[in-house]
Design a protein around this nucleic acid. Sequence first.
RNA 1: GGACGAUUAGCUCAGAUGGUUAGAGCACUGCAUUCACAUUGCAGGGGUCACAAGUUCGAAUCUUGUAUCGUCCACCA
Length: 715
Amino acid sequence: MADIPEKLTKPYDPTTTEGRMYVLWTESGFFNPDNLPARHQEPFTIIMPPPNANGRLHAGHALTISLEDIMTRYQRMQGKRALWVPGADHAGFETQVVYEKKLEKEGRSRFKMDRTDLYNEIMAFTLDSKKHMEADVKALGASCDWSREKFTLDPSVVSEVQETFRKLYRDGLVYRGYRTINWCTKHQTSLSDVETETVEKKDKLYYLKYGPFVVATVRPETIFGDVAVAVNPTDERYQKYIGQEISVQHPEGTLTLKVIADEAVDKEFGTGALKITPAHDNNDFLMSETHKLPRVVVIDQFGKLTAKTGKYAGMKIAEARTKVVEDLQALGLIEKIEDYTHAVPTCYKCSTTIEPRVMPQWFVKMAPLAKRAADAVRAGKIKFIPDNFEKVFLYWMDNSLDWNISRQIVWGIQIPALVCTACNTGALDTDAKEGSPCASCQSPLARDTDTFDTWFSSGQWPLLALGYPDNKDMPHYPTDVMETGRDLIFKWIPRMVIFGLYLTNKVPFHTVYLNGLVNDKHGKKMSKSKGNVVSPIELTDKYGADALRISLVIGNTPGNDLALVEDKIKGYKHFCNKMWNASRFVLSNIGDTTLDTVRPTLTKRDEEILAELNTTIASVTGHLESYRFHLAGEELYHYFWHSFADIVIEEMKPRLAGADKASKQSAEWVLLHILATTTKMFHPFMPFITEELWSMLPSRTPKNLLIIESWPKAL
RNA sequence: GGACGAUUAGCUCAGAUGGUUAGAGCACUGCAUUCACAUUGCAGGGGUCACAAGUUCGAAUCUUGUAUCGUCCACCA
């Protein structure tokens, strides 16, 4: 029996291997494509979706990291100039929410803090959390180039994001406007449409006697802000009132309102007559623009009634509604009350009902930008995996409303603009100074204290991560694959396409691979409140990163959610041990054969065995080229265990012990070569154990690290 | 109100361009095992591929419809 490494005589222990292998790779420098050998010329690029720097990784990250690392390691072995750029996201609103919770626990409040102090505290917190997040990425084996890591608040990133805003402004694609925005009364900021979550809510529908009309509303407390009553222009019931003024009674007096006709009014709903409250409803706001109606604010930013509501001033919405309804009933102004279920937008972080408010904010004019993005996709410049997401993307692009990019929080990139203290006209910070007169009303301009929606900066991420506009890494743009969770098809993917095209005239990536979500073992979404969150790091500690990685990949198809079953991971830990033991067997039974040994004349049976290996190489390679990682992994797994270990090794045993020297030599050579080949092919999936095993394979000449070995071709 | 996805063994899921007796892992049953590995091997049980109709020589796979579950989108107050 040949000498085999000591550690191979014991069961495989991931904990003693993984850290050591990661150090070996880091020291080799091969994560950085600049250090790769000369054969690596053609670029292959993935930009990592930057994990939030405000906490640890979750199970979904583990899947993303696994898939991206498989692609990167595979392409690196194929001789590409493989670059995978890691990042960390300051995650504006999300992090601010996390930090506010921390402040609350300490009995503090952001609203009582100085802006700069708050910003600095969140920065310290984020930079600390970021280290843990990065350690988690490393623990999963990610072969990304840390020397190029970018943080979304790096000074170069900040200045470039601000430059994009200025460019959009000059091109007339960003404007300051009064529009209905989604306001969270708890977090005191506006939110984009994708930051709200619509939930079914049971409410009452109140039928109010309203001059000569009866109107249906769920928000009787806004009656003090009513400025008109609207009917459909074709509604015969109300023809005679159109253009007239009517008098409407409410607990605090009488309103004189105009009757307007608008197509948007549904004749069938309620009574077909609609009270118009432009300051607190988007439909009504839009009508106020077409019909030139005033806007009366009756609910303030804290969700309390304003002085305009008389005795209700200072009450919260719910309380005010009860009171107003009581008082209206007392006056005999309520005809009936019905139960009513409708969809209401809520803050996706705190579930507070969104208060529509009309506020001056910065908006991106989406239509022209979205059209370019849609055209590029229709022209086939971006391929979606799975392909049905193309439809989802196009639907969003064809129906996008202007995008509110102002956030009233400190944690983020400041908008490089000034706003008029009187009329809210905006100006670029490069065109005007604080205190200089506003272009329309001559009042002094003040610094805009708002920050950008996080997606405004992360939408430019493929460029920013490559250091744009510095063009050192621009040969890596457009990148090859954007791999991310399927929930980001709305939030993120379209914005990257839009900004990529806008800034460079090129799509930011050719392929979008969307993975499903990682759910708990029952298929339910993981959430802290349900207590079913599983940390990927607990799992790597228990089973090893390799076992976790391959268990997330095999049996998981793109776009479909995955139930995380611990027994499955355990099964792949067993498989790691199988590889370990098979290697032990091979290395103790191949005599003097090494990787350099010239191929001897093989027996007919061994030719057949190699033919099966060759078929597997071709098939696995094909799957990897087509992003079918689940099939590639499964086929390899099956080949190794049930062909190589169960059949090939078993039938080699008598030959290795027998007297037929030619047969023995043939067997030894075949065993070592199958082991070497499968070790290479498994490397993208299970990098740690394969690198460790590779280091033990006998060779007369020095070997490369497995990470830069060539991907196998048919023997 | 729309769109999308799912429905295959007890459980979690694969089955790309339609093609021999539908697969994997786990679980289950029986046997074996000092010979790489009990984190093992061999053998086995278990499925009318949600339902209905259609296209085809042939359908889990394509078409249409139905049902159930899930996700996302939506400015009917």
